[in-house]
Design a protein around this nucleic acid. Structure first.
Length: 876
RNA sequence: AGGCGCAUAGCUCAGUGGCAGAGCGCCACCCUUACAAGGUGGAGGUCCGCGGUUCAAUCCCGCGUGCGCCUACCA
């Protein structure tokens, strides 16, 4: 066996194993097994910073991946990168001090790729530091042609299937990013607006006062609306009014969705102030008056206000309304403004020709229901979001760094042409379409599409891509791990696309993780200064301890509060494991694993029994992604049962036992230790691999080993073992209470067991005697020390079902009865007589436990100890 | 405004229709040959409140309160 350092030092160990794993293939997906576990790992946006939220998400993945390898699955833990997108474009513009239009598209794209590669490198380093068992041969980057070619293919297939179309339709538009965005990319921001009360003069009738927060939209006003049941506007529907300042005439319509409680009960309809306007516009076939430009200014329709930015226009028009006498009143109002999720700029709604993907709500939800949601209630979010969708998914973006549409438009008639699959990947700006003549008009000139795809078009096919699409027939991947904040995007779009392209659910299980809060309980934020970087924790305590603290933070799905004290506690536990292994090593040699047919004693059989129980329970918890429960049990077993109880019991045998006795203990300790390390390895992969290497184990790496499967001894062995453990503990406690050294010799210990033991094995006092450092005598009957029954304890589990509504009275009667009588009747008759409401009832003796105390001494100084399975007399 | 989740020791969290649990923190004692980064013991609880179901509720049901999230928020 190798030399083993005396103390646990995370940093040295972790550095060494990181390198070892890098050069090995322990995490490699083999691809030739019928027990596959394929993980649809989230492809993060390469910001260069792998934060603690990522760490939580990836740790759950890693726990699952490592566990599934141990139980013999062929695990694929791939890592993708969702490269495309605006933030990178902005960053590149900053870094190079250029605007994206300053250089040719392809050159700009190249700069973005280089930038992204740096960012990926930095995140990958943190991933390795944290010990994620990613198979880097399964890495993909959405900016690579091999990948975006697949994105294009998915687009073409859906186009040919009429699930993608091109149309003019109002879309969410970010005036700052100057691109269309999807509903999922619009986030509401709370803000205080100003409600303007202004009068629209009537053309041949009285005027009506409306309330609006957006006077700058007056130029785009095309109608007015009131609730048709609103008495204030009885008989006025159909009247015509003149828009202040701009003069166009608009009609008053009646529509129930107007809230008569708000403002004046009358509202102006503009194209477009919000989605409601779009609905009215479509329903009443109103005129389209567009007042805004793509970059957020007013256009020629606004007359003298043309060229003003939207906020400036609001002020200018409000001032003029006031000057002309239209403005009656202003008041502040709280409002929620739909804003761009990338830059928080309030979005506008513009009507634009775009590419759309049709949304089939029912199909998406059906697939969603086929997936196991963990926790279950997270499915509700998908359902709520999906049912609330009222627009199709706009997938075109007016940007550069993204997957290009494989499409051209006929220069003569505008007919779009989409490339066939065999021509992909293709950049339409650099290649002509493979057909020459326009099928619609026969024209021969083609204009390449310059719009690019929404990045969710890339990332919504990850499940398919990792499963080998399109070369292999798709079957659902095992696991999708992700945060709840992107159910409406990543999960939603993936369900949509996998359904559309493969007619299947994308995954069997979806595991939703919560957020990570700071040590102060608040959301991590720069302003609070409570941000903790994973690398910072690793440097201080190591990844192994950090990983445990995250696993114990709560059950998956709930938010996790990062706490330094939990990291420290994990570090202490790992030190314990380190020392326990070091202890074990001093008793092992190369032959220990080969010990056969050992002469197991009660303590050995008990530990093996516990080990099997723990392996089952921990495995069940891991199956259900209950990493918190799994680790908790494991810690309890290792610390309490193995390190405290068992080791203390068998030290005597290990140090001084005869060879056969010693071997049984060595064997048991070896089995328990190596099994514990294996079960712990998903949580703390570094130190467990290190400790594994210091033990005479067969497999090279603990991560190539298998989940423990221990032959379980019989249940009656458990009781006999528990008795030994309990008694040893009781005597130790008594010594501690008496101020006696724990290793002090005692005159003798007398044992009065209260359990049945098997014929094969009686009570085994050998180890106990060593542990308490006294001769142990097995006695029957009751201790010679006088003991007095003092209290009757009632088990309501027995009494309740039998006596139903008399339970309370029965319990009371038992507790009031003379404990000595209860004890006597229980022993002699097996049942106890009680009087309840003048009636005599018989209670099963099983229902009561009579607590006794020692009251007198009989000559010799002695102490009576009570344990669950025995009474113990200690003679010092 | 609707929907969902949460509420248990000082803190962070498990848990169960039948006497309430862990880690950390706190107090006291103990260097016992793997480990003082340890061991032993202790203090500390209206299991958010009110009703209901039940022999029995921290657990199941209803209502309420507080917190968090999702969705719609309205001109």
């Amino acid at each position: 066996m190798t030399e083993m350092p005396e103390t646990y030092e995370a940093s040295t160990i972790e550095t060494r194993w990181r390198e070892a794993w890098r050069d090995s293939d322990v995490y490699r997906y083999q691809g030739d097994s019928d027990r596959e576990y394929i993980i649809d790992t989230p492809p993060p946006y390469p910001t260069g910073d792998l934060h603690i939220g990522h760490a939580l998400n990836w740790l759950y993945i890693d726990f699952a991946a490592r566990y599934h390898r141990l139980i013999g699955d062929d695990v694929m833990f791939p890592q993708g990168w969702d490269c495309h997108g605006l933030p990178t474009e902005v960053k590149v513009e900053e870094n190079h001090d250029i605007h994206r239009t300053d250089v040719p598209r392809d050159e700009f794209r190249q700069l973005c790729i280089e930038h992204t590669e740096d960012q990926i490198e930095s995140m990958r380093e943190t991933m390795e530091q944290l010990g994620f068992s990613i198979d880097w041969e399964q890495e993909y980057r959405t900016m690579d042609p091999e990948y975006w070619g697949l994105t294009q293919r998915s687009f073409v297939e859906m186009f040919e299937d009429d699930r993608v179309y091109r149309d003019e339709h109002p879309v969410n538009w970010c005036p700052r990013c100057q691109t269309a965005i999807a509903d999922a990319e619009v986030e509401p921001i709370e803000r205080e607006g100003t409600l303007h009360y202004l009068t629209f003069p009537g053309v041949d009738n009285d005027g009506i006062e409306i309330a609006t927060t957006r006077p700058e939209l007056l130029a785009a006003c095309v109608a007015m609306a009131v609730d048709p049941t609103d008495e204030r506007f009885e008989d006025r529907i159909g009247e015509t009014f003149e828009v202040p300042l701009f003069g166009q005439e608009v009609e008053l319509i009646g529509d129930e969705s107007v809230d008569s409680e708000f403002g004046t009960g009358a509202v102006m309809i503009c194209t477009f102030g919000d989605k409601q306007d779009v609905n009215w516009w479509a329903e009443y076939d109103l005129e389209l008056r567009t007042a805004f430009t793509e970059d957020g200014h007013l256009n020629e329709l606004a007359g003298e206000y043309e060229g003003l930015r939207i906020p400036e226009a609001k002020d200018a028009i409000a001032a003029d309304l006031d000057g002309e006498g239209y403005l009656n009143e202003v008041e502040p109002t709280d409002q929620m403004v739909g804003s761009c999720w990338r830059c928080d700029t309030p979005i506008e709604i513009l009507s634009k020709e775009q590419w759309f993907v049709t949304i089939d709500q029912d199909a998406i939800l059906e697939r969603g229901q086929e997936v196991d949601w963990i926790p279950e209630h997270m499915y509700d979010r998908l359902e709520e979001w999906t049912l609330g969708m009222d627009w199709d998914w706009v997938i075109s973006r007016q940007r550069v760094f993204a997957t290009p549409f494989p499409a051209w438009f006929c220069a003569d008639c505008g007919e779009p042409h989409v490339a066939p699959i065999e021509d992909l990947p293709v950049k339409p700006g650099e290649a002509a379409p493979s057909i020459e003549r326009c099928p619609a008009c026969g024209g021969g000139d083609w204009i390449p599409e310059t719009d690019v795809m929404d990045t969710w078009m890339d990332s919504s096919i990850t499940a398919m891509v990792v499963a080998g699409w399109p070369d292999e027939p798709f079957s659902p991947t095992a696991l999708r791990p992700q945060g709840h904040d992107i159910i409406r995007t990543w999960a939603f779009y993936t369900l949509l696309r996998t359904e559309a392209l493969c007619e299947a659910r994308p995954w069997d299980d979806i595991l939703i993780n919560g957020m990570v809060f700071g040590d102060d309980g608040n959301k991590m934020s720069k302003s609070r200064g409570n941000i903790v970087a994973p690398t910072e924790v690793v440097e201080e305590y190591g990844a192994d301890a950090f990983r445990q603290s995250i696993a114990l933070g709560g059950q998956p799905g709930s938010d996790v509060q990062f706490q330094w004290k939990e990291v420290k506690s994990a570090d202490r536990f790992l030190t314990k494991v380190w020392n326990a292994t070091r202890f074990g090593r001093t008793h092992f040699d190369e032959e220990t694993p080969d010990i056969t047919d050992p002469a197991l004693r009660a303590a050995d059989r008990w530990l093996l029994w516990r080990l099997q129980e723990v392996a089952d329970d921990v495995g069940a918890a891991m199956d259900e992604y209950r990493f918190d429960a799994a680790l908790r049990q494991l810690r309890e077993f290792i610390w309490s049962d193995l390190a405290d109880d068992y080791v203390e019991l068998v030290k005597g045998r290990l140090y001084e036992g005869r060879p056969g006795e010693r071997d049984a203990a060595r064997y048991t300790l070896f089995i328990a230790l190596t099994a514990s390390l294996r079960m712990l390895s998903p949580f703390s992969p570094f130190v467990t691999d290190e400790l594994w290497s210091h033990l005479p184990t067969k497999a090279d790496s603990i991560h190539a080993a298998s989940w423990p499967d221990v032959e379980s001894p019989r249940v009656d062995d458990r009781d006999a073992g528990e008795l030994i453990v309990d008694v040893a503990e009781a005597v130790r406690r008594w010594k501690s209470d008496q101020g006696i050294a724990l290793n002090a010799e005692l005159e003798r210990v007398e044992l009065y067991p209260e359990i049945e033991t098997s014929e094969e094995y009686g009570i085994d006092t050998y180890d106990l005697s060593n542990a308490v450092n006294a001769p142990v005598y097995l006695r029957s009957g009751t201790p010679s020390i006088e003991i007095v029954p003092v209290e009757v304890e009632v088990d309501q589990r027995v009494v309740g079902p039998e006596f139903r509504d008399q339970t309370g009275a029965v319990v009371q009667a038992l507790q009031d009865a003379d404990p000595a009588r209860v004890k006597r009747e229980k022993r002699r008759q097996g049942e106890i007589e009680v009087q309840v409401n003048g009636e005599v009832l018989l209670v099963d003796g099983e229902a009561v436990t009579v607590r006794e105390e020692q009251r007198a001494e009989s000559g010799e100084e002695a102490a009576l100890l009570e344990t669950e399975h025995a009474q113990v007399v200690v003679v010092p």
